[in-house]
Design a protein around this nucleic acid. Structure first.
Lengths: 197, 197
DNA sequence: GCCTAATGATTAGCCAGCTAATCATTAGGC
DNA sequence: GCCTAATGATTAGCTGGCTAATCATTAGGC
């Protein structure tokens, strides 16, 4: 759930995505954008000295962008029957050496737990995009590899994928992209403050 | 799962978060940052004319920041026994009129489905932070309100919350915050390209 | 050489999104 | 006035994160 809606912003209702299986039946109806009310924010700022308006606005803008991009990526991957996690996994295997990766290697490279990888592999294997084989030499490990079908799915989708990635950043000039990267790195550095005990 | 790890970036391993209940046992070990390899990117760019390096880099930076902020917020809310969704809901009710909101209103304001609200309310009600009561006049509807306990939890946590939000943006100057907001709006506009049929 | 500890994969179970279906209630057309 | 359609809430079931526990296998110390 989008956190920023505390202050009445909104994300794209999922049911409005194009190309997803079905019509909404008893789900959210579209509703007008509710942009954050300056006076509400100022009101809060009077009650809480800790509230810094520009920071909150930047944070809300970030979360709003986050939610929209997330939604858009999900819709993109859904066209190919994939989720972000599954695509990530496939791309890793696409670049993998001959013998593939072990599930643990996949987990480590992805920054998710092994349990999550097990689940994703179950799905990908069910869809015939990936195969698990015993690893010679150490019977605890498995080799995970793309099947031909998996490889061809990627080859088929990558042009579209890169094209849409370019489109996502299409409103920014090259120098704006550079600036954005710098500013995002500063936000990332700020997460330290959130994580502190 | 963080999509950007296709190109070997990483997010903070969940198990390294401070203040979460327990020690990692059989989970991810820390591993070195793998920054995207320029030459890999250039290599790919040769194979796929659609790949625009600055766009991909900006996209990866964004997704990386997204994942880290998400993780940090989750850790922050976890200190108070909340998730982002629950916090959002509580904040809405905090500002609600006397009679509270109906679950549907909550859903609409949050941009999530009613089913999701039902689940969140179940959890919040179980924890005694919120109460559901029948609505006079229309027996299909419910009134959802904060309990005293819910209200006092918010009052207790908000100073810390705003403080940490300010901290999150603490590395940026005021004018950088403004710039960031502008650039993020452009990224948001770019999601159109992702959503197109 | 054996026994304990470490490692790899899986399983079970929680959470919070989602869709689709169901049920109760209300509203509206004829 | 009644019956159908719309509306509000819930439920069931899927997904993909997570933790914790389990099980098999391997490695290492003594």
């Amino acid at each position: 759930m989008p956190y920023f809606d505390v202050l009445q912003l909104r994300k794209l209702p999922y049911s409005q995505l194009p190309n997803l299986k079905s019509k909404p039946v008893a789900t959210l109806r579209p509703f007008a954008d509710r942009v954050v009310d300056r006076s509400t924010l100022q009101n809060w700022a009077q009650q809480y000295a800790e509230l810094d308006i520009p920071s909150v606005e930047a944070c809300l803008a970030f979360l709003r962008a986050t939610a929209d991009v997330q939604t858009a990526l999900e819709a993109h991957f859904a066209r190919y029957g994939l989720s972000m996690g599954k695509f990530t996994l496939l791309m890793q295997l696409f670049q993998a050496p001959e013998q593939g990766f072990t599930p643990s290697e996949c987990a480590e490279r992805s920054g998710v737990t092994r349990a999550t990888i097990t689940g994703l592999l179950d799905g990908l294997e069910r869809d015939g995009l990936v195969e698990r084989q015993p690893r010679l030499g150490d019977r605890r490990m498995l080799s995970v590899r793309l099947t031909e079908e998996g490889r061809s799915l990627l080859v088929r989708m990558l042009p579209d994928h890169f094209c849409r990635t370019t489109g996502l950043m299409g409103e920014l000039t090259v120098s704006e992209k550079t600036t954005l990267i710098e500013l995002l790195q500063k936000v990332q550095a700020g997460t330290k403050a959130m994580l502190e005990p």
